[in-house]
Design a protein around this nucleic acid. Structure first.
Lengths: 121, 121
DNA sequence: GCATAAATGAAAATGATTGTCATTTTCATA
DNA sequence: TATGAAAATGACAATCATTTTCATTTATGC
């Protein structure tokens, strides 16, 4: 059972609590920390098990890790210019929970993104 | 400009309007259709451009394509056995629309998936 | 000090996706 | 019908994130 390397968590925090494994790794490299990519992956996996971070996916499928405890939010993304707005997702939480309960699912998480054209585009 | 192979669309329909590129490919192989994986990818990409299908991502990041126009629903997926339940997303539609309006976004779409452990797992 | 388990990281394996390029098909027009 | 340009196709290689393997290092208890 591998415990998570505390420097990985520290770096994720420094990155704004929202980054992919590759990004965390590159950040640590640039800051001169000596760490292997494998360890970054393992640490993030372990933080995930301990429910210290959440896992979601970018549009291209790359996994991004988000610090839990950060206020849980979703994204409104412009299809044209890529501009992103963080939005509240209270309604989604309730929806996800009630749907899960209705079908007997436990330990539920969810992803939700909205995309469209922003006022400028 | 590559047009989409109609057999790919037909197969996606047959698959329930919801499958990954790899799955569409394997399905076509099994049914004896002679087609290359590359063409499947290109066709799906092209269907995406033409807004005939939507793109979303599975929990592991694999891209899945969904036929538009299908009665719009969402999925509740078991993390363990992969069992999937289609669920209504009325609350989500409203949430997406109101959030979009609030921030001046037009032509909005959204993705939302719930995942957890089903009653059997 | 020493033995043993856990942590580490380099390198290879994996799996989805994309790029390349030579070949084939389509189709309008000569 | 013959022809040629443009589009479509598919085998194969390249790319990129992620996982696995395995040998080595580090930490910990005795």
């Amino acid at each position: 059972m591998s415990r998570s390397n505390p420097r990985v968590l520290a770096t994720l925090e420094r990155a704004g609590g929202f980054a992919s494994a590759q990004e965390v790794y590159q950040l640590m490299q640039r800051e001169g920390e000596r760490i292997g990519l494998t360890t970054v992956y393992r640490s993030l996996q372990s933080l995930l098990n301990d429910k210290i971070v959440d896992l979601l996916h970018r549009e291209d499928g790359e996994a991004i890790y988000r610090l839990c405890g950060e206020s849980h939010h979703h994204h409104l993304v412009c299809k044209s210019c890529g501009d992103t707005v963080e939005i509240e997702g209270g309604a989604i939480e309730k929806w996800a929970n009630s749907m899960a309960q209705e079908h007997g699912f436990r330990e539920v998480g969810h992803t939700a993104e909205i995309f469209g054209l922003c006022s400028k585009c």
